[in-house]
Write a protein that binds this DNA or RNA. Structure first.
Length: 823
RNA sequence: GCCGAAGUGGCGGAACGGUAGACGCGACAGUCUCAAACACUGUUGGGCGAAAGCCCGUGUGGGUUCGACUCCCUCCUUCGGCACCA
């Protein structure tokens, strides 16, 4: 059919997008007010690091979450969906050093550029609420919180071995060292240094952090946090060493398997253990010292490699197992870690793989004390299960090992030989960094009075802009006399400032609360705003933050709650992790040169097309691959919508003689509303857009046939534009106006569907024989079972398949199918 | 080694235990064009067949079921996390 309308009209996204972005800004359409009567919805996307250019990965993170926030707004919520910059940190400093510029200038330029790029996306960010963490108005509150933590005993300084990255020239938190023992930023092998460091006492909250029952988070993230915290219930048990005449007549070990206590055939100390030297006999001294020295020199990787031999040396001493009076040898071995438990392990080779390996190597006895079901009395190398029956265990013989654990623990506590203990894998959070580009730690060291907190009225402790910031291994601030030399706030005497700065994860641990009242001067958060907004309702971002950021932010939230700053227990009620967008199945990276720069594509195809493509390329949580032709397909669709909606609906008659197609359209519209709504609730953007494409395709077909009336058409156009508005906000707004509707499409209510109208009058009745499809019959949707069976059995396509067979039964699934079972 | 997720056309991916492959890309054919590109229309899992239709198909092997991409078990592969934590 030939039409008068020209086909293939393309819209000028440049004109449309800049027009509406200006208009929305002028009208303050995205301003969020606390006195808005609608119910609140706080939807947060992890803020970006201002690395310079907005990467397509940023779009992948932000465009779908913006669409979701917009959807929630159309549902009738007062939506807060803010944006800011995680502006402190090593990359800025490293980049600044490379380029010979100042980190501040470099960072602020990047932020300026990225703000412009972010604006091109047409998101609903309320820029008046922007948070920039290197701004003194922000980090002042970092320092303020540090002081509050300090007063509450949650911040403390300790001389301790720390992870040292020789390339970054700073210490790292445990969370920042990968499983391979390298720096999570630069992949350099991490070594150790003993330094005075500031810590946050996150372990105080270990048990509360384990409780994630109220969180709607992906299970794998919860599991990772649980594993990271690593709670173990066990027993501290003493072994008698009084025969050696030390100050302390016993040594302490920790075990989770006290049921195996009768199987102990040796004890092992960590090489760094302070008792190692004392327990070493003179004739063993030389060997032990050589071993300890060799262990000390090993790198973290060598030390931690699991497949390594279980090395160790005998100290010459013995200790006594108080339960059976047995004397067992004491070894030093580097498979025992000083940082876990007591740094001493009781060796039970029959029931622990590592102890087994150690015993094999050193010819130590192996004694089974927990017999697995059906045990034949043979040694059990490798049978380390913790369920069985106590044997060779004195008075505890015959007990199931689970019960044995409790009874032996009771007995030890009664005798005063040990007590139940809970151990965590997680350590306190080391926050000191020997680098320039971070928030100074607000402490001074008085020559007379020691450690003195900076008074609140002297905050912020400004980061001096004129410091030499090249890393030397010590904090660069140490070289800045004007910064360092200070009067003691307590006694007025000579004092020096703490020269370390805070880990940037401190900044991101509470930024979610600063957005609530970004200009508030009375504290980190305005209590009224905190009361109104509470926790983030929906948080989105990458799963690379599964442990560090998310755990720290949870800790901060609980600590701030206990300080009375906020009223919530958890920062993020719901969490959704998007996947990664890749190019050619490889992670994009600047060094590899395979980076997709969104600006070119926005210029070429428009922000709406790039937004929609981010959502369409695959399920958001699984990530996907960028492809130019994929973007092109989405772009074609938007042009088709433009073309379709721009058609003059006067060309359609007021009513169509055959009413069926109009009903088809109406049904499709209601089905689409349902599909898109349900999919957006579950972040299934790809299928939402697919549903919208289907509706568009149907509309196009019906138009071609001119078999739809004007009213149905206009209704379909309206619903299509409303449903598209969150994903393609500019084109939806433009077409909303062009079709004579009232500004703004983004202030309209989300459409609702009517189940009855979405339902079909007829269904395709599927007819199967033995579960295999044989026929499809169009029938009235209200068909009863009996006629459906009759129709199925009468089908000419069914008969040949049941010929000569006995019909055993007929399964009827209402509204779906008939399955004839024939044998 | 342990924990978790995932394996579906040429590709990205759809599918409340009930029509496998929606939607899109690509490819092919056509329309438009002097031509190409763009755009638009149509076809498109494999095999056999003139057609009707039949058979085979969701990593592997089994199981449950009238019926399995979907649930259960085995194994394989890929990815992510943890890893001498006593």
């Amino acid at each position: 059919m030939v039409t008068t309308q020209s086909r293939g009209t393309r819209y000028d996204h440049r004109v449309v997008e800049s027009k509406w972005q200006r208009r929305w800004a002028d009208d303050g359409l995205h301003e969020v007010r606390d006195d808005d009567p609608r119910p609140k919805w706080y939807e947060l996307t992890m803020y970006p690091y201002p690395s310079g250019d907005l990467h397509i990965g940023h779009w992948y993170t932000m465009a779908p979450s913006d669409a979701h926030a917009r959807y929630r707004r159309m549902l009738g919520y007062n939506v807060l969906h803010p944006m800011g910059f995680d502006a402190f940190g090593l990359p800025a400093e490293n980049a600044a050093i490379r380029r010979g510029v100042h980190p501040l200038g470099w960072t602020m330029n990047n932020i300026e550029n990225m703000r412009r790029q972010l604006r091109s996306m047409g998101a609903i960010y309320d820029w008046d609420r922007e948070v920039v963490t290197c701004d003194p108005d922000y980090y002042k509150w970092n320092q303020w919180l540090f002081l509050k933590f300090y007063e509450a005993g949650l911040a403390y300084r300790a001389f301790a071995p720390a992870n040292w990255c020789p390339s970054c020239n700073t210490v790292l938190a445990n969370e920042q060292v990968t499983a391979e023992g390298v720096c999570e930023r630069c992949d350099t092998t991490v070594s150790h240094r003993d330094l005075n460091q500031w810590f946050f006492r996150i372990t105080d909250y270990a048990d509360e952090l384990l409780d994630m029952s109220g969180l709607v988070w992906p299970e794998n993230i919860k599991t990772m946090q649980t594993n990271w915290i690593g709670r173990s219930e066990g027993v501290n048990i003493r072994f008698d060493v009084s025969e050696h005449g030390l100050e302390q007549p016993y040594i302490d070990t920790f075990t989770t398997r006290i049921d195996t206590i009768y199987g102990v055939t040796f004890v092992v100390l960590a090489p760094e253990h302070p008792l190692t030297a004392q327990l070493t006999t003179p004739e063993r001294r030389e060997d032990v010292e050589a071993y300890v020295e060799q262990a000390r020199r090993q790198t973290e990787i060598e030390r931690l490699s699991t497949d390594k031999d279980k090395t160790g040396v005998f100290t010459g001493s013995y200790c006594v197992n108080l339960l059976n009076g047995e004397r067992v040898p004491v070894f030093v071995g580097d498979y025992v870690l000083m940082s876990y438990g007591t740094g001493i392990v009781m060796g039970v080779p029959a029931h622990d793989q590592r102890d087994y390996a150690f015993a094999e190597k050193h010819g130590l006895p192996i004694r089974v004390v927990v017999a697995p079901p059906g045990w034949n009395g043979e040694p059990l190398p490798g049978a380390y299960g913790d369920e069985g029956v106590q044997v060779a265990s004195g008075q505890f013989d015959g007990l199931p090992s689970g019960e044995g654990r409790q009874r032996i623990a009771d007995y030890l506590e009664e005798k005063g030989w040990g007590e139940r203990r809970v151990q965590y894998r997680m350590r306190d959070w080391l926050i000191s960094r020997q680098r320039y580009w971070g928030a100074p730690i607000p402490i001074v060291y008085c020559e007379a009075g020691g450690e003195v907190p900076v008074p609140y009225d002297q905050l912020p402790v400004l980061l001096p802009e004129d410091a030499e910031f090249r890393p030397t291994g010590e904090s660069p601030l140490r070289l800045h006399r004007g910064f360092m030399d200070v009067e003691c706030p307590r006694c007025g005497g000579q004092a020096t400032r703490e020269s370390d700065t805070m880990d940037t994860f401190v900044d991101s641990s509470w930024y979610q609360f600063r957005y609530l009242s970004p200009h508030y001067e009375g504290g980190p958060v305005d209590p009224e705003a905190a009361g109104l907004w509470g926790a983030v309702d929906q948080y989105t971002g990458g799963s690379e933050h599964a442990v560090m950021h998310l755990l720290y932010a949870r800790f901060f939230t609980k600590a701030m709650r206990d300080l009375g700053e906020i009223g919530v227990d958890e920062p993020f009620a719901r969490l959704f992790n998007q996947g990664q967008i890749v190019l050619g199945s490889r992670r994009m990276s600047k060094s590899r040169g395979n980076v997709v720069a969104p600006d070119e594509y926005v210029e070429e195809s428009g922000a709406d097309a790039v937004r929609c493509y981010m959502m369409f390329l695959g399920p958001w949580d699984q990530g996907g691959e960028w492809s130019d032709s994929g973007l092109n397909g989405v772009s074609r669709w938007l042009n088709r919508v433009w073309d379709l909606v721009s058609r003059d609906s006067d060309e359609l008659s007021d009513s169509v003689a055959d009413g069926e197609p109009a009903r088809d359209l109406q049904r499709a519209v209601h089905q689409t509303i349902k599909k898109v709504t349900e999919d957006l609730d579950r972040f299934k953007f790809n299928t939402s857009i697919a549903a919208l494409m289907e509706l568009t395709n149907l509309m196009n077909q019906l138009w071609e046939r001119r078999s739809v009336d004007e009213a149905a058409w206009r209704d379909a156009v309206e619903k299509l534009l409303l449903l598209m508005a969150p994903m393609a906000p500019h084109i939806a707004e433009e077409l909303w106006e062009a079709t004579g509707r009232e500004y703004s499409v983004h202030q309209q209510a989300w459409p609702e569907w009517d189940e009855a109208l979405a339902a079909s009058e007829t269904i395709t009745l599927v007819v199967q024989v033995n579960g295999r499809l044989r026929d499809r019959i169009e029938v009235d949707a209200s068909i009863e079972e009996a006629p459906a069976r009759e129709l199925a059995l009468a089908s000419a396509r069914v008969r040949p398949h049941v010929e000569g067979k006995e019909i055993v039964k007929v399964v009827y699934v209402p509204g779906r199918l008939v399955n004839v079972v024939a044998r």
